[in-house]
């Protein structure tokens, strides 16, 4: 049955897309959980991740460049976010919520134009190393090796994040700060630094997502706009600030997009939004428990 094969491979395409979305959205969700701020600049940081991955592969040729990009690009993004946080954002924590939201929007405007200044407006693309040529056969469906790689990376990030938030002291402090920041401050922990750390970690994940997505798409200005709205919807339908919720939301979004392509290519982009609407009407506060 060719039809079933197409269905299967489309399933894996959706799944690997969902993994990239998850990496980005788990970062967004983490920031949302700890800082209670929907970080609009998250999309711009994801874009910076993709662009800096491009630059690193240009500097270091060959497969080594790709792996280096995958490791270094998130750190570049983390550095950018650290500077923004310590220089500006940290002074606003006492202010109204809307102000924080607007700050992240202003940041996204600035970062978006900085990307234009540094990298120019042309399309960029990078090649995945030769290891990823060809495809893997899985359950009767053939999937490109890079997508298979994404299917491994996604769960790895999830497990890593789970380990961090549940088993390490820093992660536990961050979780506690999400629930009750006054109490965390009262026991003598510098909440401002916890917030900084959470913000940078979230942005690191955005950068990682950008680096991961880089070989599969053309890297261009405006990729931030397309992503950030998807990321917000995913985080909302999953349950705000819930990491596993980000996973559930990403799966819903990625799979509905992939199957939409199969059933009605012209209006494929409509399907994920439909899915979000249905989920929100069915479970208004998301699939899993929100930390808010």
């Amino acid at each position: 049955m060719t039809d079933l094969g197409a269905l299967g491979s489309q399933f894996f395409v959706g799944l690997s897309r969902a993994m990239i979305l998850f990496v980005v959205c788990s970062g967004l969700s983490f920031v949302l959980g700890v800082l209670r701020v929907p970080n609009i600049a998250h999309g711009s940081l994801y874009m910076i991740g993709a662009f800096s991955a491009y630059s690193i592969t240009k500097l270091v040729a060959g497969p080594a460049g790709f792996w280096l990009a995958l490791i270094l690009a998130p750190f570049v993004v983390a550095l950018v976010s650290l500077v923004a946080e310590r220089a500006l954002f940290c002074h606003l924590y006492q202010r109204e919520h809307l102000m924080l939201l607007l700050f992240t929007f202003a940041l996204s405007l600035i970062l978006g134009d900085l990307v234009k200044i540094i990298w120019g407006a042309e399309y960029k693309s990078i090649m995945a190393p030769e290891v990823f040529n060809g495809s893997v056969s899985l359950l009767g469906a053939s999937i490109p090796r890079y997508n298979f790689f994404l299917l491994i990376v996604g769960p790895l990030v999830a497990v890593g994040l789970w380990f961090f938030t549940n088993k390490t002291k820093m992660g536990k402090i961050a979780r506690a700060a999400a629930v009750d920041r006054e109490m965390v401050g009262a026991v003598g922990i510098n909440v401002s630094w916890v917030f900084a750390f959470a913000f940078v970690l979230g942005c690191f994940l955005a950068g990682l997502g950008g680096a991961l997505v880089a070989p599969t798409v053309s890297i261009t200005l405006g990729m931030d706009h397309n992503l950030i709205i998807e990321a917000f919807l995913i985080v909302t339908i999953g349950g705000l600030g819930n990491m596993w919720g980000a996973m559930v939301g990403s799966l819903i979004f990625g799979l509905s997009q992939a199957f939409g392509v199969l059933f009605w290519p012209q209006f494929a982009i409509v399907f994920p939004y439909m899915a979000v609407v249905i989920v929100l009407l069915w479970r208004p506060t998301g699939m899993l428990k929100s930390v808010w």
Partner: peptide
């Protein structure tokens, strides 16, 4: 639909419903 939800959820539902309309205008060539 939106007034059933509050605050950020209201916003997100509106964004997704609005994006539906945007997608239609964008794709209905």
């Amino acid at each position: 639909f939106c007034v059933r939800l509050a605050n950020l959820y209201f916003a997100m539902l509106q964004i997704s419903l609005g994006s539906l309309i945007w997608a239609i205008a964008f794709r209905w060539y």
